[in-house]
Nucleic acid binder design. Structure first.
Lengths: 207, 207
DNA sequence: TAAACTACCATACATTTGTATGGTAAACTT
DNA sequence: AAGTTTACCATACAAATGTATGGTAGTTTA
């Protein structure tokens, strides 16, 4: 009953999923046609009918953008991890994605937010561990006590943020590490963003 | 320049945000009109124009559902937590939501998945702690080694799942707790779902 | 009291969107 | 050789959608 998809049908399904995950909203026929260079919505329409016939999607007729994806094993999609960030001592941050995590569909990122993998154990008392993925939002103002990602001389750290009268203190949750005090010694200091959440995938240890 | 919203405008904006977060896609004018009981899309249209004038949204003209929400501080929305679940000894699971977590917009749940707050420390070697939110997907088949939520006589536990020849073993990650062996002694045993991820909000400790 | 704002309604219209129908060409069955 | 599937195109049409314009009534502001 559930036949295999053709190459093109598969690429269209991938596009549907990618759009739904990245933009949160399925595309219209016209948008799909534009993306694949079709001059005609009818072409897309026929592909979608074929995909629906094979049971991978379900369409709510007449409504716009009402494409429901019924393949449940596509819950996990690859997301770029932009670098590693030190919870202990500063670590290099890489310009390109160093890895991808399989983030469940739950993880629709706030716009402009990105992921960093944590290395080191200086935040272990905040229950953030080496290997965890932190979700970083660069568009929020840091408040005292929040966990932030900061750059010190081309290295990045994850620490708790405290603004004092004349300086900024970045403290670890682990007493083994001393607070970093920010003053004029760090000309390249910059707050990259605020950690809005921690995500840890459970699929790793599965046998 | 950026005036205050009126009561009605604020309710419409809230509806826009709620729809975008829960359904992932902004509503159409007709859908908004229906929700508020307006007989006319033009009424909605004028409200949206007013809201846009005050800078809270941005519209991509002519396109459907092209309402962009420009207020970024609404990233966190309440999500129901369906109950508590024991990582150590079994805990009662409640029929109704016991609490809400402020889950960032990142957390658009896979359909039918739900949240449970973990109590107890039996999974601490898997780095799941008391207070963490686990994302549970009830529609996946458990595989050996995965962490599952199971019900034993009206109490729920979070354990690692192992299927043996004639029985099912639920083991803790903490050596202090002994594995639970499932056989005929547990007539009401049921796998509730699979833990697909752990989420921990960082906003709690902020000052 | 006049002007401005808010909150609605009705009607009209151009696009967008989904859908239906028919056609062409290539590849692959049978 | 005839049929089927796949991958496109064109045209046509109804419904959905966003938008423009004008109107009424109540409230607030100047």
């Amino acid at each position: 009953m559930k036949k295999e998809l053709t190459q093109i049908q598969k690429r269209i399904l991938d596009f549907l999923i990618e759009q739904k995950v990245s933009k949160g909203i399925p595309p219209t026929l016209a948008e799909i046609a534009l993306h694949f260079g079709y001059k005609n919505r009818a072409t897309v329409q026929q592909h979608l009918q074929a995909i629906e016939k094979k049971g991978f999607i379900k369409k709510n007729p007449k409504l716009s953008r009402a494409i429901e994806i019924t393949v449940e094993d596509k819950f996990f999609i690859p997301r770029p991890v932009l670098g590693e960030v030190a919870a202990g001592n500063p670590l290099t941050i890489y310009p390109d994605a160093i890895d991808t995590v399989e983030l469940p569909t739950i993880a629709r990122m706030p716009k402009d937010s990105f992921l960093l993998r944590v290395k080191g154990d200086s935040l272990k008392d905040a229950y953030i561990f080496s290997g965890d993925i932190v979700i970083v939002n660069p568009n929020l103002e840091p408040k005292n006590g929040q966990i932030v990602v900061a750059i010190l001389d081309d290295a990045a750290v994850v620490k708790r943020f405290y603004k004092k009268k004349n300086e900024i203190e970045l403290v670890s949750e682990n007493p083994d590490y001393k607070p970093i005090v920010i003053d004029k010694k760090y000309p390249s200091f910059r707050i990259v963003g605020i950690v809005v959440g921690v995500y840890r995938s459970m699929s790793k240890k599965a046998v």
